[in-house]
Amino acid sequence: MKKIVITGAGNGIGKATAKACVEAGYYVIAADKDKAGLRDLQSKIAVHQLETHVADFSRPSVYKEFISRLYGVYNHRALHGLINNAGIYHGKSVNEYSDREIDEIWKVNLKSLVYLSRDFAQQELNAPHTRNIINITSVAGEVGSMDALYGATKAGVIGLTKANAWNFAPRIRVNAVSPALIRNTSIHDRIPEHRRKEYERQEVLKDPIEPEGVADVIMFLLSDQSRHLTGKVIAVDNGAYPR
């Protein structure tokens, strides 16, 4: 059974992806600081298909050791994929950020991905079959955001994706998914109302995007159907931002 690591798996896109992976026959290693969210996920998935780890990816001691501990402490011999989904969004001006919040969003949204991706690649670079890293960025990283720190970190995720596609080739494919307005996530209600309305106005497809819709794209990138893709950013935005 192929094993997939998903950060931020306690809610929203991460939880929907965990369920989709299990339905596709994967074993899921779910990590989040949200204990209640992980418990709810555990209640819906058989124990032989899921393990959970309470992990705060704002802490260097966590993101610098997480992958190595999966191999060395939890005895996983091989991991097929890493989905870097954990993220923070405050929905406020850079002028309102505290020093602590600036440090936290930098670590969770970008710096932790550097370490998790590098450590995963070092473990799997000589794997006999292709491995996958999928980073969750945001349309905010492509077109900007009123939350400058969120937009800046998500732009960094795009740059990291493209660079690591080169760094880790040919054995490991690295791609990103770039959602726009996704309903039923921890982020959705923090988006200022005028920004939500602007996102909705620009959508040319009117079926509201749910976490499961993003999970569908992630599953495509995990599959062999996307075997010729690396270094790509796939928008899930109902056509709101044509490139």
Rank of each mutant, 00 (worst) to 15 (best):
K3C: 07
V5P: 07
G8C: 07
G10Y: 03
N11W: 01
K15I: 01
A16Y: 11
K19C: 02
C21Y: 10
C21S: 14
E23M: 05
Y27C: 02
V28G: 04
A31Q: 09
L50W: 03
L50G: 05
E51I: 13
H53C: 00
F57A: 12
V62W: 02
Y63L: 10
E65R: 13
E65W: 00
I67E: 07
S68Y: 13
R69E: 14
R69D: 14
Y71K: 07
G72A: 12
L79S: 09
G81R: 05
I83Q: 06
N84S: 14
A86L: 10
Y89P: 03
H90S: 04
H90R: 14
K92D: 10
S93K: 04
N95V: 07
N95R: 13
R100H: 08
E104T: 13
I105R: 04
W106L: 15
W106A: 11
K111T: 13
S117G: 15
D119T: 01
N135Q: 11
I136M: 12
E142R: 12
T161V: 04
A163D: 04
A165F: 06
P170Q: 06
R173D: 11
S178G: 02
P179V: 10
A180H: 01
T185M: 06
I187R: 01
D189F: 02
I191C: 07
E193V: 14
H194P: 00
H194I: 12
R195C: 02
K197P: 00
E200M: 12
E203N: 01
V204W: 00
V204Y: 00
L205N: 11
K206P: 03
D216V: 02
F220G: 05
D224V: 00
Q225N: 12
S226F: 08
T230N: 06
V233K: 08
I234S: 08
N238E: 01
A240S: 15
A240C: 11
P242F: 09
